[in-house]
Design a protein around this nucleic acid. Structure first.
Length: 880
RNA sequence: GCCCGGGUGGUGAAAUUGGUAGACACAAGGGACUUAAAAUCCCUCGGCGCAAGCUGUACGGGUUCGAUUCCCGUCCCGGGCACCA
């Protein structure tokens, strides 16, 4: 056995051994419980970064741990290979996205292999391969048949100079990233998947996901956003140019606050609303305002933070309960795509309406008063409603308030008022209670090249026609090079021209491709499908699914996970799978953050710089206070954010692996922080992890070549203590693993080695027995985290077989046993010392010992003990 | 702006989920070995104090015999907000 720890040799040998024995090839087996462990597949951006290392090491630790626990483990890997960065790279380097993507996959696969993950590579897939994405197309056609997919209009960011649709990411401060042109909102046709049809089930089934973090379920529930309210109409007799009443003379709105309906002093409609468009015909100012509303962002965050602006239309509608005339405004914050594109304005009891009314001098009516409760009976000053003053929190409350100035509805609480109002509106036939969802349908059309083609043909005569199944897949040509000025497929005649499947006349293919979230919505099921399947999924899927443990970044808490859940339910309804949820347990890994430095140049866009290109200024505590570009001194913006290719702040693990080895990289990553916690990247501490592995190797080397020693019936004190320390630590480590808290499992390994090293080699008989037993425990606990060194030492020391299949160690009661325990001694909650008592001492005996203690007597200052709290095994607190 | 997290020594973190705050490490300082360096090993290490002790888990309150942990409020940082993935 080599004396020196040389990771490069050890790791290469272990990986070759695993490869030659096909150690990680997963096959259905009846004699063992299955464990499908899945990490979110990476986007092939070029190189791995530390976030990947963290994600995949977590998955690997869980996989290897479960294998040792006797499970039949599947851990697959693949590539989320379609997406925008490949097109950006093409624009920059004039390389086809396909080539760039495949090259990146090659490189990153090599990196993953060098990290020694227990992956079944035979199941590898890439979503940009026709054999994968043809099933996107196939399922899309099924959805179309069932009415789950439909064609509607969608609002997109339009760059008027490049004549192209921009992703939100490509819009910086309202301007196109390449052209700097003001971006416009534009309506174009696109396909939607009716996820809202599944809203109820997606919400209710969250309760069945016991293995999901509460915070993720909460985020999803909030996103789905079920709210009960009232949809009702304001009647009017506004007619269009042909004399027809617009929208049948009804302005529909939805509200969750029908209890405040008597406080309505205006209505606001979206810029695209028929009433707005009608009024604009005779009002140039309004027409200009509507035109202005077309610019700007489609993002919710921008909508919420932008200055709320409006203009009166000069039109009035009739309040359904008071008969009063209510002015109609156009508001830039009202979206045509939400509900009916119109809202009622109650400035007295809605904060946004309050600000709007004050800005434009609209009347503010109080229709709610605070109800006095026991807790705030003395808060008289808060009860005063002041329309001229500032907004007060309670104006918007639903509880501890009741209706006032509301005529027949006076004196009611929230629910009673809503019910009374809804009943009266229903009696008039212009309103009803309605469940409203925040969740919107999933728009899947992307005006981009590098994605899965939507299998439709546009015929002048027949309109949009689905591509027949037997013509699938619609293959994306892989040699296009996007240049930023629209979808290159529009110039590909060979792709574009095709006969209409219905009438046979010349027609054009749809050039829109699918949202890449489609690709990632079912890849987990495809991994589990047998090789060579000529269906989307097969019987083997039923064996492996559902995924027992899914691991991925918290940034996917809503969209990816919700779309995957939806897709699963659609597949179930089509009879393709039997399960209703894809992921039983979810571990949301915290992001690995790094500093990012950027600058917004004159012509628009946003440039990111590598840390090596800049000078960083720090304060005395090392906090970054500023940064300048080395080349020309440009002052840069600074943020702490997730590692990504586009921000030039990814840290490549390659240097780490080459210098210290994969085991050190893995061990350090696990040791650094618990998996769910956000982690600011710093490599200080890598040395320590490496030092530890060197000590493990050295200890193993010292034990090599010795035959197995029997454990003596009794051990010297220091050996018994060391052995106990090992078993106590093992117990803790197993518990921590069940909690998925790997940083303390890593530190447990360190504690075990510390305990073993502490006892002198020749201290007493039994040393060898304790060392051999302890080291075999240490290696097994260490092996999921640092598998290569554990594999090598396990074989060198002849513990028998392959550590991959060694049973997980169990702590021995005999080793854990102790005769006396130390209890902390508190007086009035302050630590004053400690007492030693027999391990089996009763409460009375412990009390007696505590009260007789010198420190207890001193700090009780002669006062009698009012109460003595005894926490078994932990402490005694004397209250004097 | 809205939804969800987080904040503990110089640094990463731990605390059996209400019971010894800082385990395990990193960095730093001191020492041993060495001609020297590297490597390795030993010691010190929240703050104040000679000590007894006091104080300390972002900040301000509260509940409790006892709060990093539970409740209320504030500040800061991160994630998501539907075309980045």
């Amino acid at each position: 056995m080599q004396e020196k720890y040389t990771p490069s040799d050890i790791e290469k040998a272990a990986q070759e051994y695993w490869e030659s024995t096909q150690a990680f090839k997963a096959q259905a087996a009846k004699d063992k419980p299955k464990y499908y462990c899945l990490s979110m597949f990476p986007y092939p951006s070029g190189k791995l970064h530390m976030g990947h290392v963290r994600n995949y090491t977590i998955g690997d630790v869980l996989s290897r741990f479960h294998k040792m626990r006797g499970y039949n483990v599947l851990q697959p890997m693949g590539w989320d290979a379609f997406g925008l960065p490949a097109e950006n790279a093409a624009i920059k380097n004039k390389v086809p996205p396909a080539k760039w993507t495949y090259d990146n996959i090659d490189y990153m696969k090599g990196q993953l292999k060098s990290l020694g993950f227990a992956i079944d590579w035979s199941r590898e897939l890439a979503t940009c391969r026709p054999e994968y994405y043809m099933w996107n197309q196939w399922l899309f056609l099924r959805m179309l048949e069932k009415g789950i997919a439909e064609r509607k209009t969608q609002v997109v960011n339009w760059d008027p100079v490049d004549q192209t649709v921009l992703a939100n990411e490509q819009v910086i401060d309202g301007r196109g990233w390449r052209t700097g042109a003001l971006v416009e909102k534009r309506e174009i046709p696109g396909y939607y998947l009716k996820i809202t049809d599944y809203a109820d089930e997606l919400l209710n089934d969250l309760d069945t996901l016991e293995g999901w973090p509460e915070r993720v379920k909460l985020m999803q529930a909030n996103w789905i956003g079920k709210s009960t309210g009232v949809r009702f109409a304001f009647k009017h007799d506004i007619t269009d140019d042909s004399g027809q009443p617009i929208d049948d003379g009804k302005l529909w709105v939805f509200t969750t606050r029908a209890d405040t309906i008597m406080g309505v002093t205006f209505c606001a409609v979206a810029a695209e609303h028929p009433l707005a468009l009608h009024a604009a015909k005779r009002n140039p100012d309004l027409a200009a305002f509507i035109e202005k509303c077309k610019h700007g962002s489609v993002m919710e965050a921008d909508m919420a933070t932008m200055e709320k602006e409006g203009l009166p239309t000069g039109l009035f509608v009739t309040h359904p309960l008071t008969g009063e005339q209510v002015p109609v405004w156009v508001g830039n914050y009202v979206l045509m795509s939400y509900g009916d594109g119109a809202v009622m304005g109650v400035p007295g009891h809605d904060e946004r309406d309050f600000a709007f009314a004050k800005k434009y001098g609209i009347e503010i009516k109080q229709v709610m008063a605070r109800t006095r409760t026991a807790e705030d009976s003395d808060a008289a000053e808060y009860d005063l409603f002041d329309a001229a003053g500032d907004w007060k929190e309670w104006y918007g409350w639903k509880v501890n308030v009741q209706t006032v100035n509301s005529g027949k509805y006076d004196g009611l609480g929230y629910e009673a008022a809503v019910n009374a109002v809804a009943t009266d509106l229903a009696a008039q036939g212009i309103g009803e209670k309605k469940v409203q969802w925040r969740l919107r349908d999933w728009g899947v059309s992307r005006q981009r090249y590098w994605g899965c083609p939507i299998p439709m043909v546009l015929c002048d005569d027949c309109g949009p026609v689905p591509v027949p199944d037997e013509q699938l897949p619609v293959v994306l040509p892989e040699d296009c090079v996007p240049d930023g000025s629209g979808n290159p497929l529009l110039k590909r005649e060979d792709f574009l021209n095709t006969p209409c499947p219905k009438c046979g006349k010349p027609a054009k293919r749809e050039t829109d491709t699918m949202d890449t979230f489609v690709d990632s919505s079912w890849y987990y099921a495809r991994y589990a499908t047998g090789a060579g399947a000529n269906t989307m999924v097969d019987a083997e899927t039923d064996y492996w699914m559902t995924v027992d443990q899914y691991i991925g970044g918290i940034e996917h808490a809503i969209l990816h996970l919700l779309y995957s859940r939806f897709w699963t339910k659609v597949m179930r309804d089509l009879g393709l799978v039997k399960y209703r949820e894809p992921f039983a347990h979810l571990l949301t890994q915290g992001m690995v953050l790094n500093h990012a430095f950027s600058h917004k140049p004159e012509g628009g866009g946003k440039d990111y710089y590598w840390e090596s290109e800049i000078d960083v200024q720090r304060d005395a505590k090392g906090q970054i206070t500023g940064a300048k570009l080395k080349s020309d001194g440009t002052v840069l913006d600074h943020e702490l954010t997730t590692m990504s290719k586009s921000k030039n702040n990814g840290v490549d693990p390659q240097a780490l692996i080459e210098q210290y080895g994969a085991d050190t990289a893995r061990f350090f990553m696990m040791f650094a922080a618990p998996p769910e916690q956000t982690l600011e990247w710093a490599d200080s501490g890598v040395e320590g992890a490496h030092r530890f592995l060197k000590r493990v190797w050295a200890f193993g080397h010292a034990l090599a070549g010795q035959s197995a020693a029997a454990m003596p019936a009794s051990l010297a004190d220091d050996l018994a203590a060391a052995r106990r320390e090992i078993h106590v630590t093992l117990k803790q480590a197993s518990y921590d693993l069940s909690k998925q808290q790997f940083n303390t499992v890593a530190s447990a390994c360190m504690k075990m080695l510390n305990a073993l090293e502490k006892v002198q080699k020749d201290a007493a008989d039994g040393w060898l027995a304790v060392a051999q037993e302890g080291f075999s425990i240490l290696l097994r606990v260490l092996s999921p985290i640092a598998p290569h060194i554990s594999h090598a030492l396990w074989r060198e020391l002849g513990y028998g077989g392959d550590i991959l299949n060694a049973p997980w160690p169990e702590p021995l009661e005999a080793a854990l046993k102790q005769d006396t325990v130390e209890l902390m001694l508190q007086v009035n909650g302050k630590l004053r010392g400690s007492i030693k008592v027999a391990a089996d001492a009763g409460k009375d005996a412990i009390e007696a010992i505590a009260l007789a203690d010198e420190m207890a007597i001193k700090f009780m200052e002669g006062k009698p003990a009012k109460k003595v709290v005894v926490v078994p095994g932990r402490l005694v607190n004397i209250v004097a």
